[in-house]
Design a protein around this nucleic acid. Sequence first.
DNA 1: CTGTATCCTGATTGATACTG
DNA 2: CAGTATCAATCAGGATACAG
Lengths: 105, 105
Amino acid sequence: MAVHDAIDVLNGKWKITIITCLLFGPRRYSEIMRDVKGISGKVLSRELKEMEINLLISRSVISTQPITVSYSLTDYGTSVQPIITVLSEWGQTHRKQISKKTKDR
Amino acid sequence: MAVHDAIDVLNGKWKITIITCLLFGPRRYSEIMRDVKGISGKVLSRELKEMEINLLISRSVISTQPITVSYSLTDYGTSVQPIITVLSEWGQTHRKQISKKTKDR
DNA sequence: CTGTATCCTGATTGATACTG
DNA sequence: CAGTATCAATCAGGATACAG
């Protein structure tokens, strides 16, 4: 089922957050590290690699001293934005729905 | 972030599949078990319970002998359909995108 | 600065047997 | 039929130290 392709690609606790971060423009490794609070270096590095393989982002090395690396969304990666919007809107509805009934989670 | 509310609620390897199954109409426990291939009884039972708490589905017991239980989507649960559609469409694009480049996954 | 390697822990899943 | 209990296996994620 194609749904699961999408889920796999966006899978991982942080991918959506990383994409959201990159929607504002290119970011360096350390910048993402700062913006995405709570992520560990290992996980960030792994998720970025996966996202690059899945063509969501592109990675460019700038050979300064020391080197810096810039990550940016591809057009394709940018096309995730509608999904985030839909999820976000639905999530807000969900809160109202739940609080109507009782308080949990 | 509201996105993660949505993700939490739809979280679990099977929820989307279960919802998709229920979009065709109410199903009994054993029917879902048959339709959703690969799921274990324990996991199905737990996910159904979570989904009930989150108001995605409703559970009704029919006191036949032996008893049967029917699960159906609430209106709210049905409102997940657009999300599934969007994810599905994006997932298809993804396949094309990936196969353009190389063959993996 | 941008990662990789290693080790560790808790959560998730599954198989199986059992209950009402 | 519709679950629950128990146990074993797997895995994602994190802390830390280290490398280019």
